[in-house]
Design a protein around this nucleic acid. Structure first.
Lengths: 341, 341
DNA sequence: CGTTTTTCCGTAAACGTTTACGAGAACACA
DNA sequence: TGTGTTCTCGTAAACGTTTACGGAAAAACG
């Protein structure tokens, strides 16, 4: 069924070496011979077997994308990652690279799946998502000398790998800026309690902007919750119990915002009327919720394409003449003004 | 860096054949030798190179999942496929199989990507999504003798491959049943205009239930639109212009329902008050929209796991002693009653 | 025409596995 | 002791490529 390079060579009465060179565009093959080989390849419907190539060249031409569920949950933060994945895959496809999706199992030792990919050499590089502040996957890959890039910054591993992140600090800053401009002084911040770096970055921006406006940072208005709807629902009443309650809340996650709005509704507080709400990192849900939620939106698909480029630029096999470059970028978000603030 | 089976054999002073047999659990190796091999493998951190295995065994141990964008659009129907993908990947991982995600490019010849995977033998089998009524990908794979399974039924290819689908016919029937029970007689049906099989199945169930209740099927109440929000927005006014307008609408797609509700709102018609709305195939958006949308929900993650099992059962290399079985299943949906009807 | 260079191609090794085959050693049995 | 059986392991081929090397033929050059 599957024709091999031997079949092709036999059919043309030439050696497999020449066939291979012809197909791979090498210079030392006669123009006429090359044409005959290419024609015959089309006729016999020949494509080189990837396993054979991989073995010989020591490269699989596939990139693994690893998603890690949040501990204690089976959520991966999907609505966020899908557009990113689409962009990533599109750019990789341009380079004839395949994308393998690896998901850590909820509640299992996370590195298991990653190790398997790395040790059995199933992929040439890895893209990590859900980056933690301290991320043992990064430590492992660094130590193993395995190429990788991350979506999100981490403290682990130094500046030795490409990374692409959203400017959460600036988003936190701008959110405060916008609310202050609309007259708010009591602004709460609700973020995930996990060791996710963006929660810290967001809060840095939030604090910075408050200070710039001479507003005291009130610890009672800052709360951490689990990064899903339930988390937002549970933690929002906490900031409302402050002796001087907020008039605005910035949520660092869409799901938490939805849960938070539910909690507010139960307290008789209407987001968009009695309470300004801003979400950092927009997802489709923000657009359809009632009231529609003002949110900061990243260009996720473009980011997927960009991170693929950055990863490729760091791989010796793909890097251009200027050699291997480690690039790190932080992208701004776009404010989508809606009804909730 | 990467240790090979040769390193391991040299280290133990035995042949690579014995090492391989020991690692693969073959019977003809001394128990003591096997222990020494396994220990040394752990010590030297050895894992077999997948490219080598693939080449020798003629199997890559990876399955490709192909998503196809709707023509003229760059949408893949993501919110629907993600839970499915999670289940699929989880079950495949249990069998040490990798998942490769292949996305057709919008506006490009769709089979291109698929051919590449098949011809270069990058995967052992394919799972198709977005199945069309007549699907040339199915024709291609059948003709090529390449193993595959589909999410969704198709007319192409006969009963020669495993498939798993939602019972759209029954959902259409039940939706009508529910609306009739609530007193509705003028019930509209809005479905995608593309050659997607579920649109036809849904309509069959819709018609069947109407007839059972002696309600005439009014062509003015049936409309096709593009399968996204804009499509729903554009086509909904069409059924409202009927001389005897509907009091209920069943949408065959979540995005179309959202667009439809927007159109209704602009006409001063409030879903859930002046108009009953039911959606077939629930997504998270239905839960957060206002009003929340009554919808039929499939068990997508379980379906992903199930289709993986069905595919594996059809593969000679994985099929049990009873041989290769082709299984086709149609799963029911669960009605999630909310505010909109 | 002799020499050097270039063009083109075949040979064979290598990538890391798995596995069919066969052989030596140990054992059982008469 | 001789014969047959069972365990255990080494040898070597094979999977389908790519590529270093060398050599024959052709072209270029003096």
């Amino acid at each position: 069924m599957a024709s091999s390079i031997h079949d092709l060579a036999r059919h043309l009465n030439i050696s497999i070496g020449t066939v291979s060179r012809a197909l791979n565009g090498r210079a030392d093959v006669n123009a006429d011979t090359r044409r005959r080989v290419l024609d015959a390849a089309k006729e016999l419907n020949y494509s080189p077997n990837q396993s054979g190539r991989s073995l010989r060249q020591g490269a699989t031409r596939s990139i693994a994308f690893m998603l890690q569920p949040h501990p204690g949950d089976q959520q991966y933060g999907e609505p966020f990652f899908i557009p990113f994945l689409i962009g990533l895959q599109a750019k990789l496809a341009e380079h004839d690279l395949d994308l393998m999706v690896v998901m850590g199992e909820p509640g299992q030792y996370q590195q298991e799946r990653l190790r398997r990919v790395v040790e059995t050499r199933r992929a040439d590089a890895v893209v990590l998502a859900n980056t933690r502040r301290e991320d043992d996957r990064i430590d492992y890959l660094s130590k193993a000398g395995f190429p990788f890039a991350t979506l999100g910054r981490s403290r682990s591993g130094g500046d030795t790998y490409p990374s692409l992140d959203i400017d959460f600090e600036r988003a936190g800053d701008e959110a405060v800026e916008r609310l202050v401009a609309r007259g708010h002084r009591r602004i709460a911040a609700i973020r995930p309690s996990l060791d996710l770096n963006f929660g810290y970055l967001f809060l840095d921006g939030y604090r910075k902007a408050l200070k710039r406006h001479g507003i005291e940072v009130d610890p009672d208005l800052i709360a951490d919750g689990f990064i899903n709807e339930t988390g937002g629902y549970q933690v929002t009443p906490q900031v409302m119990r402050s002796k001087d309650p907020p008039t605005a809340i910035i949520f660092n996650n869409d799901a938490m915002a939805l849960g938070g709005c539910k909690a507010l509704a139960e307290m008789g507080i209407r987001p968009g009327h009695d309470m300004a709400v801003i979400v950092i990192v927009d997802t489709p849900l923000c657009r359809y919720f009632s009231p529609t939620l003002t949110a900061f939106r990243p260009a996720l698909e473009a980011m997927g394409r960009r991170l693929a480029e950055m990863l490729l630029a760091s791989l010796p096999a793909f890097a251009g003449p200027e050699g291997t470059r480690i690039i790190r970028e932080v992208w701004p978000l776009e404010l989508i003004a809606r009804e909730s603030d």
